[in-house]
């Protein structure tokens, strides 16, 4: 589902990722780990084509990103749900509209959008907050809105960048349960985290990065 072959990414004089190769199979749930600045976020950005690799090939959900035209990027992104580290919620829109946006850009009808959004908000226990604005929500609630927005359109791949970074252990556990449910429905997942507790003893694939270099791929 996701394949990196000898991928290198440089930022001016600094190498962010060097000669990275790995494969994540369809329906798999994997983790990328490493200290801050090890290249986790850059790796995710390469997957949803917010960055272009300087060398190497990337393939995502059947799309060869080398051959991808700028006009096709939106259609690639419609296959990928992203839980951004900085949330990227629209402050002037309520929870419902934030989640619905992912469907509106796909041109879905309003009736269908209402059904899907409320269903998704219910699955992350936020149905009662649909009229609230992001500012009035706690960090954990905002995180769940972002997860709801990422999963509402049933993407093939779901990426999460430090999804539990700002959460207390209970909320973090609840978020991870949600991810496992999403994965159980067949969605391929890649979670970037430096929190070992999330993958320890799970037997899931863990991609370890250090200073932009792949130092190991193996079960957690």
């Amino acid at each position: 589902m996701i394949q990196f072959s000898n991928v290198t990414k440089d930022y001016e004089n600094q190498t962010a990722l060097r000669d990275i190769s790995f494969v994540i199979e369809k329906g798999e749930m994997a983790f990328i780990t490493g200290p801050s600045g090890s290249g986790k976020t850059t790796l995710l950005k390469l997957i949803y084509s917010a960055e272009k690799p300087d060398r190497g090939n990337i393939s995502v959900a059947g799309w060869d990103l080398d051959q991808l035209k700028a006009s096709s990027i939106p259609y690639l992104r419609r296959n990928i749900g992203v839980v951004f580290q900085d949330f990227r919620l629209l402050g002037n829109r309520n929870v419902f509209d934030n989640v619905a946006m992912a469907l509106r850009i796909r041109g879905m009808g309003e009736r269908e959008i209402r059904t899907k959004v409320f269903e998704t908000l219910k699955s992350v226990n936020l149905r009662h907050k649909s009229d609230s604005y992001p500012k009035g929500l706690s960090g954990g609630e905002q995180q769940r809105v972002v997860i709801a927005r990422a999963m509402v359109a049933d993407p093939t791949v779901l990426l999460a960048d430090e999804p539990t970074g700002n959460l207390d252990p209970d909320t973090a556990e609840s978020v991870m349960r949600t991810f496992k449910d999403i994965n159980a429905r067949g969605t391929t997942m890649l979670i970037a985290t430096h929190n070992r507790e999330l993958y320890r003893n799970t037997g899931r694939k863990v991609i370890r990065l250090e200073g932009g270099t792949l130092v190991g791929v193996g079960p957690g």
């Binding site: 939106p74 992104r77 951004f84 990227r88 946006m101 850009i105 796909r106």
Partner: peptide
């Protein structure tokens, strides 16, 4: 920018 990341076309 958020619209684009969610898959909005030009």
């Amino acid at each position: 920018e958020t619209f684009k990341l969610l898959g909005a076309t030009r």
